[in-house]
């Protein structure tokens, strides 16, 4: 992946907000993210698992227009790495269209749990 060259084009922060609720991190993504922003988000979340002693990460991807192989891989890697640091990851908000595209792409999502929406995702994490 290429990092932006030149200081003239400073990157805006990743358009996602991260709330901590109890021992969980709740991540809601606001707009479509490019690869670099996804990687930044992944790094940031991994850091926070240690800093905030989080036990669960809930990621709402409803705003992502597309979950392609890179996005899926990045999320799956995050789930794996977070698990290695003792935190569980749940992805929520995958729309029917995105689900269909993911099945056609035939990319596996090992180790990552998914739930319909925020509510069910939280239940997943607390149970």
């Amino acid at each position: 992946m290429k990092i932006d060259e030149g200081p003239s084009r400073a990157r805006a922060p990743v358009p996602a907000s991260i709330l901590s609720q109890g021992t969980n991190l709740i991540v809601s993504i606001h707009t479509a993210l490019d690869d670099e922003q996804l990687m930044l988000l992944q790094r940031d979340l991994l850091d926070r698992v240690g800093r905030q002693r989080a036990k669960g990460i809930l990621i709402d991807v409803a705003a992502l227009d597309v979950l392609d192989s890179f996005a899926i891989r990045t999320l799956a890697d995050l789930a794996y790495m977070a698990q290695l640091r003792g935190a569980e990851t749940v992805v929520v908000g995958i729309s029917p269209e995105v689900a269909m595209a993911m099945v056609r792409l035939a990319v596996e999502m090992p180790l990552m749990r998914t739930a319909l929406d925020l509510e069910e995702g939280l239940q997943c994490l607390t149970s």
């Binding site: 290429k2 479509a32 490019d34 690869d35 670099e36 227009d65 597309v66 029917p96 269209e97 595209a101």
Partner: peptide, 28 residues
């Protein structure tokens, strides 16, 4: 650069919408 990937797929959605594709096909 990376941001152009997002732009390309957004433009593709616009063209696909013009053709009359369903939401599923647009996402594909």
């Amino acid at each position: 650069r990376d941001a152009d990937v997002v732009l390309a797929r957004q433009k593709a959605r616009e063209v696909a919408a013009e053709v009359g594709f369903s939401a599923t096909d647009m996402t594909l």
